[in-house]
Design a protein around this nucleic acid. Sequence first.
DNA 1: AGCGACACAAAACG
DNA 2: CCGTTTTGTGTCGC
Length: 555
Amino acid sequence: MCADNKIHPRLQQLLINDVRKSTATAPTVPLLNASTGFPPESSPFYHPGSNYLDVRPRLGASTSSVGMANAPRSHPLPNLGYKTTRDIYSSVTPGYTRALDHPQRSPPFSVHSRRHPLSPTPSPGLGFTTNPIRTMDPPYGAKSNQNIPPLQGIQQHGQLAYATGHSPIKVEINGTIDKGFFLSEGEWTCYRRNYFSCICSYSLTPNYPGAAMHYTPNSSATHYEVYGFAMSISAMVHESDTHTIDLVQHTPKRDKGPVSRPDRVELSPKPPQQTPHPLGTLYPDSHGHSHRLGVGPASGSLYDGFNQSPSGHPTEHTFERIQFKQATANNGKRRAAQQFYHLVVELHAHVGEIGRGVADQWMKVAHRKSAKMIVRGRSPGHYQSERRGSASSGPGAAGGSLSGYAPQMQDYGPGSSMLGSTYSTGNYEHRGQYSGHNRPHDLPMEPVMSVEDVKALESSKDYQYYPTPIYEGNDTRQGIEMFTHRTDPEPVVTSMADSMELSTSRLKHEHDGTLPSLFYPNPSTAYSSMSSGCNRFEGKPTSAGYYPQMLPQST
DNA sequence: AGCGACACAAAACG
DNA sequence: CCGTTTTGTGTCGC
């Protein structure tokens, strides 16, 4: 698979160049230190720099790129639609957005504001940020997000525990897929060419910063000292654990800049109960960086989280300007089986270099898959009839619906982005079908998963996203050597309880277009649901018939 | 059909 | 109000 985190040399070079404005570029290396208060340096295993970090492209020089030949475009095409649509969408929280955003435009949330042209994508309204209105909402804040595909339950690949007393640690993964997605016919959809971003954070319960902890992969009795954690995002084909799909990250320069694969970013845990910041990463972090991320090469930066932990790592990271490298198969063909992808938010533990040479060792502790999604490779124009689907989509997105998209819809509640609280409130207004009901606030936070998903999850086995040494939980035992292989499928954990929840929640969520939030509101919840919950909000009953493996995955 | 590249244009910013 | 930046997407050509 895909693996590589590594960026092509070329890219690396390129990356830096672009940065014009974005400062970010700098060597972002956030990586290093052991984070979280763990005793990194002292540890024998501690490496000053992780490899992966180093790998990133950051510097380079070239430039490149660009364009090659370009043919002058034959004719200018006016896009008729643009405006209209845009305008409509634009309404989106413009004001708010900005305010909130602050710094840059790209801030994750706010962004959407920008254009939401045809594609629903842009989240129309997402205002993520905050709509004034929404902001109020409360309790969990979040809300809605129509345009935010929900995440399924967490799947752990091993157990974390404090060295002292061996007290177990509950792990929560929070992720918000921002921008770019919309429901079309009940399915989460996005365009391959459009950007989306993913705000990631995790929390440990209990959280004792600085306390030594160890990780025990499932199926292994071996304990690995944990020096820090990192999160990453990847994508895979629905119902195929082995088919991964490459994700690419652009700089603001887009085509003129380098393209890289989103990196693994070191993060410190976010306090579980912590209230998410409404703005999320929007705010500049302590370093003063604004997060415009993206810019940088790959991931960005490190500077993302605004909350930094003592260890110096942010507690949250936004992977911005992310695109799927390839579209799902059979888009557009109604009859043909539609392929789906899942975006996966992963948490890795830095277990140090064991031994010598090898660079850092990372083991995947847990991951959370998103609801299954369709990635369209063609221009929105090709889908106009349906578009927006769901959401609004009607044909043409109709204007009317647009309104639906209105600003309010999206906002994130405070938590949404961050903590898990997000769930939608229901705003699907226009979403016709889905819209049905808005979900009361009470939505369950847990993600619901369909049976299918569950199965899929259970069956899942390997994930090897990184070339670098990462262990999967399963293998652990094998120790380092295993990097590469993953072994068996980990048992996905699904407890009965979980199942029940799932089913329950499922019912609840099913029609709402709303999305359940990705996050778990509180640790306990999270814990319980951990293994498999998931949800899919998709309208289709099953994935049967899909071609899970069709795509060539990136490998 | 999907993809990469180029280009236009609007939204977001400043 | 205006210039710049960023990003959605139309189009071409493969």
